[in-house]
Simulated scan of single mutants.
Amino acid sequence: MSIFSSIWDRIRGNRPKAGSAAPEPRATPAAAPSPAATAAAPVDVEAVLVSMAELKGEGAGNWRTSIVDLLKLLGLDSSLEARKELAQELGVNAGPHGSAEQNIALSKAVWRKLAENGGLVPDSLRD
């Protein structure tokens, strides 16, 4: 499974229930929703991540701008090797791997890709 797919699966699997501020716990991976289900109920990515960050507390970091903190919040590998692989998946070639320039470009690429896949992502996170 690609790293981006893991990111998207974690976000979709932690979608808050209507009227609930906390993410829905998940014991097993959910099956991918049908295109009709995705179109009918887009995922509010920021709301999901805010809920996850609130549960984690102060250790959530700056996930809005840091790809490392975003991956950690989702419980995914944030190592340089994982970020290199993610950069390759998303076609991000900004600065040397591990540099601030690369990490910022990678973070923005992830937000754009989440939006392309049906996530509701504020413009401020994609630009």
Rank of each mutant, 00 (worst) to 15 (best):
P35D: 03
Q102T: 07
S79V: 00
R26C: 08
A41D: 12
P42D: 11
L70H: 11
P33F: 00
W8M: 09
D69A: 09
P25H: 03
D44N: 15
A27F: 13
V92M: 04
P16G: 08
A27L: 15
E89N: 13
R64N: 00
A105F: 04
P33M: 02
V110F: 06
V48S: 12
A53C: 08
L120A: 09
E85S: 13
V121S: 03
E46Y: 08
A82I: 06
D123W: 06
I3Y: 00
T28H: 09
A53Q: 07
A37I: 05
S6Y: 00
A82M: 01
E58M: 10
E85V: 14
Q102E: 13
S99F: 00
E81Y: 03
D69Y: 00
A36V: 14
A87E: 06
P23Q: 04
L76E: 10
L90A: 11
A18Y: 09
D127G: 14
T65K: 04
K108M: 09
E101F: 00
S20L: 09
R126F: 01
V92H: 03
L80W: 00
S2I: 02
T65G: 09
L76A: 03
K56M: 14
L120M: 07
L106Q: 09
L73N: 06
L80K: 00
S107H: 01
L70R: 04
P96C: 07
D44M: 10
N103Q: 14
E85T: 14
D123G: 08
L71K: 05
P23I: 14
D77S: 08
L114W: 03
N62D: 12
R64A: 07
L71R: 11
S79C: 07
A39F: 01
V68I: 15
M1Y: 04
L71N: 10
G59A: 15
K56D: 04
M1C: 03
R112A: 01
S2R: 07
D69S: 14
V43D: 04
A21Y: 10
I104L: 13
Q102D: 13
V43Q: 11
S99C: 05
A30K: 08
L74G: 10
E89Q: 15
A47D: 12
V92N: 10
K17F: 07
G91I: 09
S34I: 04
A31S: 13
S5M: 06
A47R: 14
R15Q: 14
